[in-house]
Design a protein around this nucleic acid. Structure first.
Lengths: 156, 156
DNA sequence: TCTATTACGTACCAGTTTGGTACGAATTGG
DNA sequence: CCAATTCGTACCAAACTGGTACGTAATAGA
């Protein structure tokens, strides 16, 4: 199962790329080329980020985007939420009223604890941290071919 | 955004329900009625759980399903993985080879730490724990209308 | 001040995945 | 031998995601 949508993944890549050059104002086309992402999709992601106030947009001939706040003050959770909406484990976590089993479902109250753990994991990492070498976060190999490591896959 | 698929959510509900009556062998139709879930969907979920070895299926006239292991020895993560597959934050977490940006994408190594946090959050909760009152896990209100609480929603 | 260039923002369309259903094959107890 | 029950496969519909195209707004230069 994949937790993050492609767009949310792109959003983190784009935001991190912006964080790498804080003072620069860059347009969507250039950003797309530098990140190797489709131009139109990048524009769509940037729009969502701008709407959430994470990046500021300047129009006109010399316009472009830049981060609205320092990279240390923007968490991955914010970027993901800007694109995919609030984070919730189950349907009833986000739309409580839609669940017909509200009165007797025994499992529902327990999701909140797991929900919180996920949210905190995403909130704990800032864009700035995404730029630092991975080794600073955990003992992750920086080998050229990280697929040798099992770190990226979680198996029960 | 919703992290768990509906089927995975159903899977936890069904597995928890089975855990509530450990010795009983029950068929899919009865299980569907008791959980208020569509019969055909329950059968599909049970098939996935049986395939993963979490429940044992008995065929024939007096057949049915039961947990293959004690409820304390089955984690929510296993149930989810049985239905939705391995847990991964991003596409490249599960299918590393599919990512064309492998060589220069700076964000990828960092996902593993978040991945691990999510996996541990799901692994830490057993089916047995899902049956105990929520208050034992965190200070969650047990009021008849839990929607009054904000615990279920995570906002950045 | 006008015009042309540049880029943002919105609306629309196609593909894929997920959720749900129905039918047939196999197995066991009476 | 028959009936009941489950497993397994194949199929269909709906929702969502991803991608594209077009219109609108703003600025720089003349």
């Amino acid at each position: 199962m994949i937790i993050l949508s492609k767009l949310a993944d792109y959003g983190v890549i784009i935001a991190t790329h912006l964080a790498a050059f804080p003072a620069r104002q860059v347009n969507a086309t250039t950003l797309a080329a530098e990140t190797r992402l489709p131009q139109a999709t990048v524009a769509k992601v940037l729009k969502a980020l701008a709407h959430a106030g994470l990046v500021s947009a300047a129009r006109g001939a010399t316009g472009g985007y830049r981060l609205a706040r320092p990279a240390t003050a923007i968490s991955v959770a914010e970027v993901v939420a800007a694109i995919d909406g609030d984070i919730g484990l189950t349907q009833c976590s986000v739309h409580v009223e839609d669940c017909a089993r509200t009165t007797y479902c025994p499992t529902r109250p327990h999701w909140s604890a797991i929900n919180r753990a996920v949210g905190e994991a995403l909130s704990a990492v800032s864009l700035d941290a995404m730029l630092t070498p991975a080794a600073f976060i955990r003992g992750i190999s920086l080998s050229p071919n990280p697929s040798q490591s099992d770190e990226h896959r979680f198996s029960a």
